[in-house]
């Protein structure tokens, strides 16, 4: 990796991982390390998925404010899961094979995302603010719908809304881990293969077409990749709200480079550092319950506001 900024970030991430693995280990080292290594791998995958999905989405939508989470990709995924449970019942859903269920839900998400957001992104082309606002409110609608459906599934579940609201980094679902890892890794590879074309997409629609990109197909492909990555991250830890916005903004700020060959790994590394170091600090050092997601939300909200007031939306 010739890029100096990336090298420094990689070193910082390696250090964070090391601290995460060894801090406060007592008793059976082998057992604890194996357990932590698995969770570390999942966290790293979540970080990379969210960062790359956000970067791709921002490039094809032509602005630095929207993220897949803000327009409700993750809410849509949870909605699909909820509707599935509602349709066939919780017991039957639980008996579906893990792999088939994850792949099926992910495929539905990809279809729904392409149908919904391709229309949104094309319809509001050139009118970034309208698109951003419509996207955000769509996100709100998906979250409300999810809460609605979860009420229908279990009217007595008081915290139904809450389940769908925040990421829990300390309670990673072990079940879908391996299949999600495979899907996530494949999608990341796909994003890497697109890096040069994404550079051209970032110039804007007309420039991209003029330089020989099939803009429509790129948009669809990008949305499918975003759906795959979002499904991966959401299946592992839950919805992530402003996390993606936080890390891509930091990546732009720190790396000051337009190439996706730098931006995507950079954002992924930063996301990894924030997640791993944040998790180490919150869980082990401060002993706080499950609030890293909330803190990220708070910081991400500030970044969002700063981007708006500083005209970063252009």
């Amino acid at each position: 990796m010739a890029h100096r900024g990336l090298a420094i970030l990689a070193a910082a991430l390696a250090l964070s991982c090391l601290v995460y693995l060894v801090i406060g280990v007592r008793g059976n080292w082998g057992f604890v390390l194996a357990l932590r290594a698995e969770r570390l791998a999942a966290l790293l995958l979540v970080a990379a998925s969210v960062a790359v999905a956000t970067q791709i989405f921002q490039t094809v939508s032509g602005n630095r404010i929207l993220t897949p989470a803000i327009v409700g990709f993750d809410a849509l995924y949870i909605l699909i899961q909820s509707v599935l449970v509602l349709a066939i019942g919780g017991l039957a859903a639980a008996q579906l094979p893990e792999i088939g269920r994850f792949l099926g839900e992910t495929a539905i998400l990809a279809l729904a995302a392409v149908a919904l957001f391709a229309a949104l992104l094309r319809g509001a082309a050139g009118d970034v603010q309208r698109m951003v606002l419509a996207g955000i409110v769509l996100g709100v609608m998906f979250r409300s719908l999810t809460a609605f459906v979860q009420r229908l599934i279990d009217p007595n579940e008081f915290a139904a809304v809450q389940i769908a609201s925040f990421a829990r980094f300390n309670r990673i679902e072990a079940g879908p881990l391996w299949i999600a890892m495979a899907v996530g890794a494949a999608a990341l590879a796909g994003a890497w293969a697109m890096r040069h074309r994404l550079d051209v997409m970032a110039l804007g629609r007309d420039h991209a077409i003029s330089l020989g990109l099939d803009h429509r197909r790129m948009l669809m492909t990008a949305l499918v990749l975003v759906a795959l990555l979002t499904a991966t991250a959401t299946a592992l830890v839950g919805p992530l709200a402003f996390f993606g916005l936080l890390v891509t903004s930091l990546a732009h700020l720190v790396l000051r480079d337009h190439r996706h060959a730098v931006l995507m790994p950079g954002a992924a590394l930063i996301a990894g550092i924030v997640l791993i170091a944040g998790q180490t600090v919150f869980e082990r050092a401060l002993g706080l319950a499950a609030t890293l997601g909330v803190v990220v939300e708070f910081l991400g909200g500030l970044v969002f506001l700063a981007l708006l007031l500083g005209r970063g939306w252009r």
């Binding site: 925040f166 909200g301 506001l305 939306w313």
Partner: peptide, 19 residues
């Protein structure tokens, strides 16, 4: 349209603090 956007973000920040 910047106005509602700023409002939503501000609401999200206060909401996160409350949470």
């Amino acid at each position: 349209l910047l106005v509602p956007l700023a409002g939503l973000a501000w609401g999200a920040i206060l909401g996160a603090a409350a949470t």
